[in-house]
Computed example of a mutant assay.
Amino acid sequence: MDKLDLIFVLDSSNSLQPNDKKEMKDFMKKLIENLGVADNKTHVGVMTFDDSPNLVFHLGTHKTQSSVIAAIDKMKFGYGATDTGKALKYLKEEMFTKPNGDRPHVPNVAVVLTDGFSKDAYATQYYANESKKLGISIFAVGVGPSVDPGELKSLSSSPADQYAFIIHSFSDLDKVGDQLVNTTCSVRLPNTSITAVSTAKPGCYDRKDCMVYGEDVCTDYAGWSSYHCPLWCGFCNGTTSQPPCLDILPNCVEYGGDICTRPDLRIWALRHCRAYCGFSPCIGTPTRATTTPKPTTPRVCQDRVNCEHYGGHSICHDEKYKGWAKDNCYSYCGYCVEYAIIPPTTIGNLHCPGWKIPSECKMTYGDATCCPMPKCPTPGYNLTVTKPHL
């Protein structure tokens, strides 16, 4: 390939160890050496992401291979959660732009490296799709057991077997390097010029993820919307994509129709259960009204991720993340479906209450001056006191 604009998008979340960061740097340097950096060949940009995107350097900032490698050696990583959606939004709106070094008529390639799943699956899929519509080819490399294979494939370009990779550890990155180089060399510009995809006037773009607010925001908060959501609301001429009529979560029915009507859960439901709730563009066809849930076997009381890495037990009670917590931190947050009923008891002159406790919790008995109390492996379990024995 004669010319290529290549951007690395690197996870810098809490779970990364010092050696993981070194392995990522070595991977980038090896890939760059194979592709070759020069004014008329490959230009490289680098960004990291945790709770927010972070610029390392833009395309074309460093014109020679040695200067790119030196900049990679000096780069720092952040610390936080994994918000891949925000990173892809920044990639599309800031990194691959002419003012920041993107060259016209040169293929755009992004390599996303992550060791976990995004905190906002809907935004990740949405901005991945928007980036691919602009002709950006996305390689997605997932490392370790916390990666969501489905999410990785959905954010990568097609075919997934050439653009999405899952490896055991960062030390295995060299195993995908050659295949990535070979596929990169076959990337071609889309039939439609990247600069002609959008018909929006200069300055006609949304500054927020406006779809989560719904159409009412355009009339109820017209002043705010005219600045933050002019394209979404039609205040300026341009084209925007309808959000897909689908659910990001496969089990929205388990949360019940309440998530669709509660104001405090609206944004979460818009992002995760759009079809189930019948939000735009699914208006009039909510799946919750027509779908009978299939019988399910009781879920095993265990977590899908290391929940300590996601902010401790605050995620179990924060309304913004309760749906995610129930799906991924089932045991840690005390959502287990199997409960034991402990009947009220009398100990001497004490009338002790009954309890409804998860099966992982046990009752502890002291002396005759105290009622038995439940004890659970960790904080956060749902414990219910029943009517005291009288």
Rank of each mutant, 00 (worst) to 15 (best):
L31F: 09
P190V: 05
P53D: 11
S131L: 15
V9P: 10
N108A: 14
P358C: 07
G85W: 09
Y255K: 06
D327W: 02
E308P: 00
T114L: 02
R103F: 00
P374V: 07
F49W: 10
C301Q: 09
S359Q: 13
W268S: 11
M95Q: 03
Y90V: 05
D206P: 04
T291H: 10
G78N: 12
D258E: 12
S280H: 14
C333S: 04
A128H: 03
K25M: 13
L180G: 06
G256F: 05
A200P: 01
L113I: 15
K3W: 02
V56N: 10
V300I: 15
K92N: 04
V147N: 07
G256D: 14
K294H: 11
W324E: 08
L249T: 02
M95H: 01
V147P: 04
D161A: 05
K153N: 11
A325D: 00
D247H: 05
T114S: 10
P149H: 07
C370A: 15
T297R: 04
F279L: 07
S67A: 13
L113R: 01
L113P: 01
R188Q: 15
H309C: 04
R299G: 00
Y90T: 04
K326Q: 14
D367W: 14
E33P: 00
G135R: 08
T124C: 07
P353I: 02
E23C: 14
I347E: 00
F165T: 06
Q162L: 13
F139E: 13
C236D: 06
N108D: 11
I32S: 04
A275E: 15
L249S: 13
D26F: 06
C316K: 10
E130R: 15
I72C: 05
V106Q: 04
S131H: 02
A70N: 09
V112C: 11
